[in-house]
């Protein structure tokens, strides 16, 4: 694939600094506006106060356990959903019978925005752990499934032919041609699924929770603690960014052979 690089008068380093300049400016402006009362504390607390809230909460020992509980929910749900999506994707990618049986139903289910199922999920599971994990798993399984089947279907048939003329066994064909060939697409699904996992968790925790980041937010809402509310939003954002960074790291490691992911141009 061709890469278009526009020439710039600036070096990589300067561009990197520039890319961080605007977020820093926004935070600074936010602080200044709050300090001068242009934004009332009941609307938005200044960033410094959010930071303070984080420190007090952490010192009182409330923040970390809640964070841990949320992360555990997300991880459990993600593992179940991604595992299911991947296995179904493999089955449908490899077997035309599995495709005939499963694919249409899954595609139809996919057309339903999974968050619309929330009321039903609450009826099934109540507002306990089950409801949250199930919702996360549901949201995660579709992108992983879609991208797994897509990756397998988009394989170059010429490489499969080559595999057969080199007399590969079925296992070798899967291990050395099909799986690595589908991997870019699978990882794309993984990256996307991390975002949906997080979204599902936020929604599920906001509906009702007795622990977790969402619970912190609910509790803070009762007492109009905007600083804690903003803090929970920031935590969700930071974890989302970290998950995405982890997925990108995985892509760079596993797809080093791929011109689009290679470390240097």
């Amino acid at each position: 694939m061709k890469k278009f690089v526009f020439s710039t008068p600036m070096g990589e380093k300067k561009l990197f600094l520039l890319s961080w300049a605007s977020p820093v400016m926004i935070v600074l402006l936010w602080e200044v506006y709050c300090r001068f009362g242009l934004i009332g504390p009941e609307i938005l607390p200044p960033p410094s106060k959010v930071l303070l809230a984080a420190i007090t909460l952490a010192e009182s020992g409330a923040l970390l356990p809640d964070l841990g509980i949320s992360l555990k929910r997300a991880a459990t749900g993600w593992c179940i959903g991604a595992g299911t999506g991947f296995l179904l994707g493999l089955a449908v990618g490899f077997s035309s019978i599995a495709r005939a049986v499963l694919d249409r139903s899954i595609q139809m289910l996919r057309a339903v925005p999974f968050l619309a199922l929330l009321p039903l999920v609450i009826v099934w599971f109540g507002v306990g752990e089950g409801q949250k994990i199930f919702l996360v798993a549901l949201g995660v399984s579709f992108p992983v499934y879609i991208n797994t089947t897509l990756g397998i279907r988009q394989l170059d048939p010429k490489l499969l032919e080559m595999g057969s003329t080199q007399r590969l066994t079925t296992y070798e064909t899967i291990r050395r041609i099909i799986f690595p060939g589908a991997l870019p697409s699978i990882l794309m699904g993984v990256r996307y699924s991390l975002a949906t996992a997080w979204l599902a968790l936020v929604i599920a925790e906001t509906i009702g929770a007795s622990a977790g980041i969402g619970f912190l937010a609910l509790d803070a809402r009762e007492f109009l603690q905007t600083d804690v509310i903003v803090l929970t939003i920031v935590i969700y954002a930071v974890i989302g960014v970290c998950a995405d960074a982890a997925a990108r790291f995985l892509e760079r490691r596993l797809l080093a052979w791929h011109p689009n992911y290679s470390p240097k141009r």
Binding site: K158, L159, E161, M162, G163, Q166, R167, L168, E172, R176, I177, P180, G181, L183, L255, W257, H258
Partner: peptide, 20 residues
């Protein structure tokens, strides 16, 4: 040997050659 090399882009040369 085909008109195109049909090497696996995700495997290095010796692994490509030892395929099979």
């Amino acid at each position: 040997v085909f008109q195109e090399h049909r090497l696996l882009p995700w495997e290095n040369l010796w692994r490509n050659v030892s395929l099979g």
